[in-house]
Design a protein around this nucleic acid. Structure first.
Lengths: 149, 149
DNA sequence: GCGGAAGACTTGACTCGTTCAAGTAAAGGG
DNA sequence: CCCTTTACTTGAACGAGTCAAGTCTTCCGC
């Protein structure tokens, strides 16, 4: 038991996923954990505060393998670049601000995965239902109503 | 009543939306109607079969204003370029093939708009719930199971 | 601990969907 | 039919993401 009780055991997660433990991977996991819904650029910047020599290609590669392995989740709302989060496996959803692009988590209203079944799926084999709510975040909503006064 | 009974009255739709009626706009509407879920490049190609001199910028502009006016709907599944469809206002959803990217329509399981309500929306003012189902299309599904034999 | 093979990272060029900017052409109200 | 508004053309630019070649690390087996 070390002094990082509150932090996830990223090294263990990587080993459990049969992935090599490297400084860039640990730094990316910490960065995504610290800043949920960060885009690649933000992750890169955050990583470089701890590991200044990490290349942008490494961050793309790492985010790619972590996504494939299910250690991070990649989301990409229309009109946005790819964003990443550590919260995986609970099938939660997202609400996106149409004005500023801010993303927030929304718990699944149904709770089972996939949490919706399509009425007619055209023969597709469906494994996930992704829900994106669109609207205005509190800040943009008050701003808009103030402007229209 | 002209000889195009089966076709939508695109000119009327444009006028109703307070948009000028132009040859590029009519051609884009026809193209999107013919080929639902087409990306910008396909729309451009289709438009040029009728109007060979239309620029690619014009297609971007037209798709932009038609989307804003609600005459076409823009979707952008993660990892895909923007796609467009004429079917608007019925809040239907989409199923996307993880393997080949094919998109198909799925009727809304609930039927009201927004068809889901978030349990805790963090103060966001939500106006739409967009559902994307992920899986494999019939062709890719049979291909995969054949390969793994 | 140590060596070697598999895999990760660095560097730098490049692709391509999309946007920007300036000038020309067309729509449609008066 | 003219004039103003707004669309469209042309051509350059942007930026997220990818590709490719070479170097460095990880970690397994000894």
């Amino acid at each position: 038991m070390d002094h990082h009780d509150a932090e996830a055991d990223f090294e263990g997660l990587l080993r459990a996923a049969d992935l090599r433990v490297t400084r860039p991977r640990l730094a990316v996991l910490r960065a995504v954990g610290r800043q949920p819904h960060a885009d690649t650029g933000s992750v890169l910047a955050a990583v470089r505060t701890e590991e200044p020599t990490v290349s942008h290609q490494a961050v793309y590669d790492v985010l790619g393998v972590l996504s494939e392995s299910g250690l991070v989740r990649r989301i990409q709302p229309a009109g946005s670049v790819a964003r990443y989060e550590l919260r995986v496996g609970d099938n939660h959803h997202h609400v996106v601000c149409r004005s500023c692009g801010t993303v927030a988590d929304v718990d699944c209203a149904v709770g089972v995965r996939p949490c919706l079944h399509a009425s007619d799926s055209h023969g597709f084999v469906i494994d996930e239902a992704e829900v994106t709510y669109w609207g205005l975040c509190p800040a943009c909503a008050t701003q808009k109503s103030a402007t229209s006064n």
